[in-house]
Design a protein around this nucleic acid. Sequence first.
DNA 1: TCTGGGGTCCTAGGACCC
DNA 2: TCTGGGGTCCTAGGACCC
Length: 436
Amino acid sequence: MQRAIALVDCNNFYVSCERLFQPKLEGKPVVVLSNNDGCVVSCSREIKELGIKIGTPWFQLRDIARQYGIVSFSSNYTLYADLSNRVMSLLSQFSPDQEVYSIDESFLDLTGIPGRHGDYGQQIRVTIRRCVGIPVCIGIAPSKTLAKLANHIAKKQTMYRGVCNFNAMVAAELDSLLSGIEVGEVWGIGRRITSRLKMMGIHTVLDLKRAPAKRIRAEFGVVTERTAAELNGECCLELEGVTSPRQQIICSRSFGSLLSSLSDLEQAVIAYVSRAAEKLRSERSVAGGIQVYIRTNPHRERDPQYRQSILMALSSPTDNTRLLCHAALTGLRQIYRTGFSYQKAGVMLTEILPASARPRSLFDDIDAQQRSASLMSTLDRINRRMGSGTMQLLGEGLRKDWAMKRGSLSQRCTTEWGELPSVQALVECRNGKRHE
DNA sequence: TCTGGGGTCCTAGGACCC
DNA sequence: TCTGGGGTCCTAGGACCC
């Protein structure tokens, strides 16, 4: 039986989330910005039509934004994560085998599901739109890589009405579609490989599909070889149903303004370690090492530049925020240099293993460990219930001059009682939808 | 003035061993 | 003068993804 893998991808996901509660923004140019309102990370169709690309620094768009009345939002991850969960949970009802690939994408295995998969795809679209309000497009194909491309076409070519099924096409039709797509659009073919492929005369997806496997292997390695095989309909990448525990947890951020004092950096590092440790405990894991790094702003070429990182081993793997902070601060003091303006710091938890597999030592202080575990779980419970950051280490500081800028943040409409939309706003939402 | 954050996998090369 | 071959493990860095 032919494999049928569907890729469901939300359209301009962050922008769609914002529009959901402000339907008057339908048809208007809207962008969502990264942390610190730095770069564009999601943009509406109207923005793409203006030639603006994802990743463009926002300050470079100030003039054009005024000219075209662009509406901008700071990123509201609480809102996006909640709406994503709703989409994913609905999608899980359409297939026994789902891989949630990212916040706005999910693979579904449709192999063996009876009926025409194109119709099934339309049914999925309508359901997501009606129940959550987010528009999605769907690509269906025998491999994940081809499903990605089918999705790309479903988004670009309106004649497919949001669902493109490669499995329903004859070979010549498919090849003609593939010959019209640049090779850089392929999942797994990034900027570097694209330019090297082009030097070899491989420009389109069809060119890569037809390239000799041995040559691709020799030039680019096993990963790209697999990608090419997937283009030929060979399914090399299986769906990964259960998410395996992470191997590293990173928390890093640029500061709202440049920092130079060690004490400011210490506050930020304590805050980042706290976030990372919270994630670690939520996965019931412990970490054996913690890496800290700091850097100046590489874009300010005239300023003296410095970047350094250090990996600290822990005497025994732990999930305790205070122990992790102690290691991180020891490291930070070793790499800190005076005379620089720092723009960013980060911490990375490594050597992660399940808490149940933590090695025991003869010298473990069982009492102290139990007290620490109970302190941490109380901390997490309070912050889950009362909101993140309700209870924190004093070392994070209270003023947080370094905290990131989020100038145009929307409400957390679906997760905070205090930020629920008013009845009137909801009526406006509904009326807005009717006009579509 | 202002340029994000969080991940994974693979490979090359060095250290070390027999 | 001529200096092997094969294996493992670790780390840093590159490339990719959203």
